[in-house]
Design a protein around this nucleic acid. Structure first.
Lengths: 182, 182
DNA sequence: ACCGGCATGTAACGGGTTACATGATTTT
DNA sequence: AAAATCATGTAACCCGTTACATGCCGGT
């Protein structure tokens, strides 16, 4: 699913600017199953506007640079619905970290540990973060997807904690303590 | 991580042809955190060969079209090691299915159900598949990554089974039911 | 005075996907 | 006889990432 469509989707939730849409990709519930940067969002919004799928209201705030707030049109909503009616593509996951862990035997021990801890930390943080934005005020389908992300991150954390000995079996087997320092 | 590097990595495990490398992406332990098609693998191998990172032995089998078996060189292994020594990029997950579930309210009920069941079935199959190729004859780091994939798929299945009421609340959405079953 | 956050955009580049092209063998 | 599997490859296209460019505001 391209960024154009995703932007359209986000705009069904309410008007937003390119900057804010990007924040939703970074921090919002979308973060866990998609990503997009400015370089793709701004051109996408421009194209959507050209095609009449979104309207654009330029709000010149005093002080701040002019904000462009986009709003989905009836035509845009229709287009998004049509897109959702198609069969979804398979998930595309690409994890460099897992590739590295797969080839752990070719890595420097320190680097391996650093990568591992970094990833574990990231998963913990992500799980925490989703939990923090959860207070049941959100619609159930949104609860589902954000809960899904949380469940996966928690599973990842648990698995990594329980199976680190498969990667670091060289020195003493009490890895839980060894991993904590540094 | 580009397909070139991934091919190099796979070739550290043993000689292989483009066709076989692709099978590893589809069925092997890599399937759960990366994907690549012919269109990227063949050019990648060609480039790697041109740069002296892999050797190529053409085996003309009778009947079958000539098979090109690639073999990593010392220079290639060195290059791969160097690549692994760098900091890994963040995971890039893109799941169209989750986007669709997020916008479940905009989907036709039947289609939603189809998408949901299809995905759940795929996760079950994937988890089973990983479990099937697991008989402990493989090195521990490989065990780690394939176990990781399995753990995530199992978590996904569990979560979907336990929380489907968040998406399909039309027929019997009471709290009673949610609490009683399973 | 400087840095981080707010705010928008463009252009080049890179790289993966898709579609096309070929052809023999084995299975149904 | 048709379909699936084995087997390799090219070229166009799509589209996302990266780097660059600009500029104001608020806090330290």
């Amino acid at each position: 699913m391209d960024v154009r469509t995703l932007c359209l989707g986000i705009l069904t939730l309410g008007d937003s600017s390119g900057y804010d849409i990007r924040k939703q990709f970074e921090e919002g519930p979308f973060a866990y199953f998609h990503h997009a940067g400015f370089g793709s969002i701004y051109p996408a919004l421009k194209a959507l506007n050209r095609e009449g799928l979104v309207d654009c209201f330029e709000m010149s705030q005093r002080g701040r640079p002019g904000k462009k707030v986009y709003s989905i049109t009836a035509k845009g909503l229709e287009a998004f619905r049509n897109r959702l009616a198609k069969k979804p593509a398979r998930d595309k996951n690409r994890s460099e970290i897992m590739v590295m862990l797969f080839f752990a035997h070719l890595l420097d021990e320190d680097h391996l540990r650093e990568v591992f801890e970094g990833y574990l930390g990231g998963c913990r943080k992500a799980a925490e973060h989703i939990k923090s934005l959860d207070p049941a005020g959100i619609p159930p389908n949104c609860q589902f997807t954000s809960g899904f992300g949380q469940a996966l991150y928690e599973a990842a954390v648990r698995y990594m904690e329980d199976n680190r000995h498969l990667l670091f079996d060289k020195e003493g087997n009490d890895q839980r303590k060894a991993g904590m320092e540094r």
